[in-house]
Structures are given as structure tokens and as C-alpha cells.
């Protein structure tokens, strides 16, 4: 049952060189640069996103993800979910409005996999970039690079993915859309894909020995042609390619993976399945994990499984 959590609203990513990172996310992914804050953090967004920002880059000695934020439908829902999180036993911290430029009060909580998530209800709504709200044209003409539409989801690696999935499902109303089970290992869950919307996933979790790891942040493109065009740009700019272009078995998205200059993985993808509340959980067998991840190659890739920040 949905509980008023609307969508992934932001992700704060640690990078080792903020200027290199801004060039990557702005000029290669094609995100819109919406400015810096007093701490020197850089704010960006996909051009179709109505809120002020969705990606925050923070310079640090160690790459990875600081937190992922979800927008809820109202301040009342924010307060209700905060109380639910406290009752569930989460460590909850309220971050005052304005700590992120243009964002209202955030409710930050920890999770069994060691990741930090946030909820918030308010963020400056600056509208889609480059098109009007009335009689909008199809797209703005002066987009850069891969012309990423929006920040779409994150894949996070950690140990107790059952715990984090249960938290997201029970307290925040996420739906388990897909999972990978190890049929030879007592049906241990190896991966969980969760949606708070109609999308195939808004956040995904993969079992991994170490807590709090970041596998990728993903951005949506319009077409398979745009994924191939992204592949061309990856070669033109000598960006470290991970894998693709290919299709996933899980969620059936068409995809390519690459790394930012600090080694954080990015995905751009298009297509894929959708999730209605009455949909049964789609289950892949871990024994078919190669096909589940890379539908064409059907080969497991050590880097994709093990390389994280």
C-alpha cells in the first residue's frame, strides 16, 4: 500500500574533484547546472524535472553516496512517516529547511544496509528546464551530452537487504517489483527491486558483505537510439565504460553503464517494465543471474558484481 512517498528526489554523491565531476555530470550526462551552495556543493537536475535539483555533488576524500532522498506528497505525510520511522526503531535526524539550497525540512534515517535515506515534502519548483508550462515544445534545443531526462533510481549494495527492503515496504509503502532468489541457498534473497511509483524500480538493493556501498545512480533517456548515442559520447570523451549497451533481464531496461571521474558508477537507460499495485513479484533465479543482469551476453561480469564506491 502506497504511503505518500512519490519519487526519488535527490542523491548526494561524493566526488574527489568537484570541477571534474561537474564537467562529467553537466557536459557528458547533460544535466542542468543549477548552481553551488556556500559549502561548495554543486546542484544539478535532469531537464524534465520540475523541482530545483536532483543531484548534489560534494567534494570529499572518498567517493560514494551520502544519502538518497524521496519526495513525499505533503508536510502532513512527512510528519506521519517520521513518527512511523521512529516507531520502527530507525535513527531519525531532522535536517532543517535550507541545509540543501531550495529544499525544505528533511527527515533523514538510517537503514539495515547502512545507507542513509531522506524524506522531504518541499523543494523549490522551478519547472522543467527550457520549456514552458503552457503549450510546451517537445524538448529544449540546447541540451548537452546524453541529454538525461531525469534522475531515476539508485542501486545500493549492502548486507541486510531484507531489512532495508522491509523498512521501505512496511514503513514507506514501497512495493517489491522484482527480486533474485538463490534457489540452492534456502531461497536467500540476493537482490530486491522496489518501487514507490509505477516504475519498474525507484531503488534497488543487492546483497554484498560490506554495508553502505553505492553501485550506481541512474538517469533516464528517451530512446534506445539515445542509449547508443550515449555510448558514442562515452568513446568520444574516453569515459571509463563498465558494460553495455545491452538490455537487462531484470526490469528489461535498455542500458549502458560507465563511471564518473571519481569511480562512481552511472547508468543511462530507457524502456523497461512498469509496476501496478496488483502486480505479482517477478522472481529471477540466482542461477540465471547472468541473464537477469545482462539479457544478451548472459555472462556474469566480475566488475559489475564487485566494483562499488
Amino acid at each position: 500500500m502506497r504511503k505518500g512517498v512519490m519519487r526519488p528526489g535527490h542523491v548526494q554523491i561524493r566526488v574527489m574533484d568537484i570541477e571534474e565531476a561537474v564537467i562529467h555530470y553537466r557536459d557528458r550526462l547533460g544535466l542542468i547546472d543549477v548552481g553551488r551552495d556556500a559549502q561548495g556543493r554543486a546542484y544539478l537536475k535532469g531537464w524534465t524535472e520540475v523541482d530545483r535539483f536532483s543531484v548534489v555533488l560534494r567534494e570529499a576524500d572518498e567517493p560514494g553516496m551520502d544519502f538518497m532522498g524521496f519526495k513525499v506528497v505533503s508536510s502532513e505525510v512527512l510528519e506521519q512517516r517520521k513518527q512511523d520511522l521512529l516507531r520502527y526503531g530507525c535513527q531519525v535526524e531532522v535536517i532543517p529547511a535550507g541545509e540543501l539550497d531550495g529544499c525544505g525540512e528533511r527527515v533523514r534515517f538510517d537503514s539495515p544496509t547502512g545507507h542513509y535515506f531522506e524524506l522531504y515534502a518541499e523543494k523549490d519548483q522551478t519547472g522543467k528546464w527550457g520549456v514552458s508550462e503552457s503549450n510546451p515544445e517537445a524538448w529544449p534545443e540546447d541540451l548537452k551530452g546524453m541529454r538525461a531526462n531525469r534522475f531515476d533510481h539508485c542501486l545500493l549494495y549492502g548486507d541486510d537487504i531484507d531489512g532495508t527492503a522491509a523498512l521501505l515496504q512496511n514503513v514507506l509503502g514501497f512495493q517489491l517489483s522484482e527480486q533474485v532468489l538463490d534457489r540452492d541457498g534456502g531461497d536467500m534473497r540476493v537482490a530486491a527491486f522496489l518501487a514507490c511509483s509505477m516504475k519498474a524500480h525507484d531503488v534497488a538493493l543487492v546483497r554484498h558483505p560490506e554495508k553502505g556501498k553505492f553501485h550506481h545512480a541512474s538517469f533516464y533517456l528517451d530512446t534506445w537510439g539515445d542509449v547508443l548515442r550515449a555510448a558514442d559520447l562515452i568513446s568520444m570523451h574516453d569515459i571509463a565504460l563498465d558494460i553495455g549497451p545491452t538490455r537487462h533481464g531484470l526490469t528489461h531496461g535498455q542500458t549502458i553503464y560507465f563511471f564518473d571521474p571519481s569511480g562512481n558508477r552511472n547508468e543511462v537507460f530507457t524502456g523497461g517494465d512498469y509496476t501496478y499495485p496488483d502486480h505479482p513479484v517477478v522472481t529471477w533465479d540466482a542461477q540465471q543471474l547472468g541473464k537477469a543482469i545482462f539479457y544478451h551476453d548472459r555472462q556474469l561480469n566480475e566488475n559489475f558484481l564487485g566494483v562499488v564506491t
Binding site: G64, D260, S262, G263, N264, R265, N303, G306, V307, T309
Partner: peptide
Amino acid sequence: PVGCRGGGCGV
């Protein structure tokens, strides 16, 4: 071993 090639993953 080749990983992220950005000084991030440590492999």
C-alpha cells in the same frame, strides 16, 4: 585487476 578507473573502487 581493472575496476572503476577513477581511483574510487580500490580493485
